[in-house]
Amino acid sequence: MPVHLIPRPSQDRGNADHGWLKTFHTFSFADYYDPEHSSFGSLRVINEDRVQPGTGFGTHAHKEFEIWSYVVSGELEHRDSLGNVEILKRGDVQLTSAGTGVRHSEHTAGTVPVHFLQIWARPSTAHLQPAYYTRHFSDAEKEDKWAKVVAPISAPGVKGEREGEGPTPVHAGVTMYASLLSPGKTLSHAVPGAADEQQRKAYVHLIQTSGYNEGAAKGNEVRLTGAGQEVSLREGDGAYVLAGGGEQLGVENVGEGRAEVVLFDVDVE
Rank of each mutant, 00 (worst) to 15 (best):
H4Q: 11
S10F: 05
D12C: 06
F24G: 02
T26E: 13
F27R: 09
F27P: 10
A30L: 13
D31L: 08
D31S: 13
Y32F: 15
F40S: 00
V45H: 04
I46T: 05
I46K: 01
D49Y: 00
P53Y: 09
P53V: 02
A61N: 12
H62I: 11
K63G: 09
F65Q: 08
W68Y: 15
W68E: 01
Y70L: 14
Y70I: 14
V72S: 04
E77T: 03
D80T: 12
S81C: 11
G83K: 11
E86K: 15
G91D: 03
D92W: 09
D92S: 14
V93S: 06
T100Q: 13
T100S: 14
V112A: 13
V112H: 06
P113R: 04
V114R: 05
H115E: 13
I119C: 07
S124L: 14
H127G: 04
Q129R: 13
R135H: 11
H136D: 06
H136N: 15
S138G: 10
E141T: 11
K142D: 03
K142V: 03
K142Y: 05
K145H: 04
A147P: 02
K148W: 04
K148L: 12
A151G: 12
A151D: 13
I153E: 10
A155K: 13
G160V: 00
E161Y: 07
G166K: 10
P169C: 02
A172F: 11
V174W: 03
S179T: 15
S179Q: 11
L180V: 06
L180W: 12
L181N: 07
S182E: 13
A194T: 10
A194Q: 14
E197I: 10
K201F: 07
Y203E: 01
V204S: 02
H205N: 06
H205K: 10
L206Y: 08
Q208C: 08
Q208N: 08
Q208P: 02
T209W: 06
G211K: 04
G219K: 12
G219P: 04
G219I: 09
E221L: 12
V222S: 03
V222C: 01
T225P: 00
T225H: 00
G226N: 03
G228P: 05
S232P: 00
R234E: 06
E235F: 03
E235K: 05
E235T: 07
G238S: 04
A239D: 07
Y240E: 15
Y240K: 09
V241T: 04
A243K: 03
G244N: 03
E247V: 01
Q248N: 10
G255F: 05
R258G: 10
E260H: 14
V261H: 01
V262I: 15
F264Y: 14
F264Q: 02
D267V: 12
